[in-house]
């Protein structure tokens, strides 16, 4: 504690410009942002085809599903919980979207089916965590496997194909020159960012994750806050599933397998603390883009695809190590 106080008083005495820089560097997503800029520069030098508008847009399109889900999971992690069931949840929502799309066509009905399925699954997670008082890691680990079983029950193991074109709009179309998936991701980011900073629920999420006991003593609705966060994950997974189905044009029973790892990676690489209470809505977006840039750049530079998982793991460890060292160096503030 005294060390933190000393560092703070040193900070107060430094010149205004360094103070501004210091404040910026204390932002949760600062290391990831710096790393992203360095990576962009490095890949641009290493591969000619990297820094082209087409390639950059294709990276954003590829990370849209990941980014949208990470935005919501970020809120769960900020609230001090975790959700590792999103891979199977995406698969289940995609099945719902695909089934309704082949039956009725259109965009709104499949989207609504996907979001409803997601909210239902998310609510089950949330209720088991809050009312059942089971740790979220266990609930969502169990659901990761249980939901995959539900997918096989519903589909009987067969693929859903021939998704009508009007349903695929959300995955394929462009609006004012920008691909819809990218557009949806940034729109959802703006919404979550505003809600996170300005709404009661958004502030409660930070309070509950930062210090649950204090939040309870302050009279905050801890269970409702967390339940809403889990339901939000479901809703966003439903939207992401519609984009996923639109891009893929079919639904396989293994859709979304391993996605949970990328989502958690995006959140913690972006700078949100896995312990909860500390982070921002921008963090998961930067984290997702960073993952997209690395996977894309690796391919352009010629690294075999089998190394993807290793790079992802190393990135998670690098991110949490950086975070731990940074907190040690600049004090535990912010």
């Amino acid at each position: 504690m005294s060390g933190v106080g000393a560092l703070r008083s040193v900070g107060l005495r430094t010149a205004p410009t360094t103070r501004g820089l210091r404040r910026w560097l204390l932002r949760p997503e600062a290391p990831a942002a710096v790393f992203l800029v360095v990576l962009l520069a490095a890949f641009s030098l290493a591969a000619d085809r990297f820094l082209t508008p087409d390639n950059l847009e294709s990276i954003l399109v590829q990370v849209a599903v990941l980014g949208i889900i990470a935005l919501a999971v970020n809120q769960v992690i900020l609230a001090g919980e975790i959700d590792i069931s999103v891979g199977s949840m995406l698969g289940l929502c995609a099945v719902a979207v695909g089934t309704v799309a082949t039956a009725t066509g259109g965009l709104l009905a499949p989207l609504a089916a996907g979001v409803a399925t997601g909210v239902l699954a998310g609510a089950v997670n949330g209720l088991l965590v809050t009312l059942g008082r089971i740790p979220s890691i266990i609930v969502t680990l169990g659901m990761l496997y249980a939901l995959r079983g539900v997918i096989l029950l519903v589909t009987g193991g067969t693929w859903i194909t021939q998704i009508p074109d009007e349903t695929r709009v959300l995955g394929l179309a462009k609006l004012a020159g920008v691909s819809l998936p990218v557009f949806v991701m940034f729109a959802l980011f703006l919404i979550v960012n505003a809600v996170s900073r300005n709404s009661t629920w958004g502030r409660d999420v930070f309070a509950v994750g930062g210090n649950r006991r204090a939040a309870r003593l302050a009279g905050l609705a801890i269970d409702r806050t967390r339940l809403l966060a889990f339901a939000l994950v479901g809703a966003f997974v439903g939207i992401a599933a519609t984009i996923y189905v639109g891009r893929a044009g079919s639904v396989q029973t293994n859709a979304g397998e391993g996605l949970e790892l990328q989502v958690i990676a995006a959140v913690v690489i972006g700078g949100t603390s896995i312990a909860g209470g500390r982070g921002s809505a921008l963090a998961p977006v930067i984290g997702a883009v960073l993952i997209g840039v690395i996977l894309n750049g690796m391919i352009l530079v010629g690294v075999p695809g089998v190394w993807q998982s290793a790079v992802l793991g190393a990135l998670i460890l690098l991110a949490v190590t950086t975070d731990a060292l940074r907190r040690r160096l600049v004090g535990g503030a912010a």
Binding site: L261, A265, V306, G313
Partner: peptide, 23 residues
């Protein structure tokens, strides 16, 4: 040494070890 949560460390090594094995 880094006072990190076991969950996030082993989630990272979950991907890292599997990735090295695959690679």
């Amino acid at each position: 040494r880094l006072d990190l949560h076991p969950l996030v460390v082993t989630l990272g090594t979950f991907a890292l070890f599997r990735g090295i094995a695959l690679g």
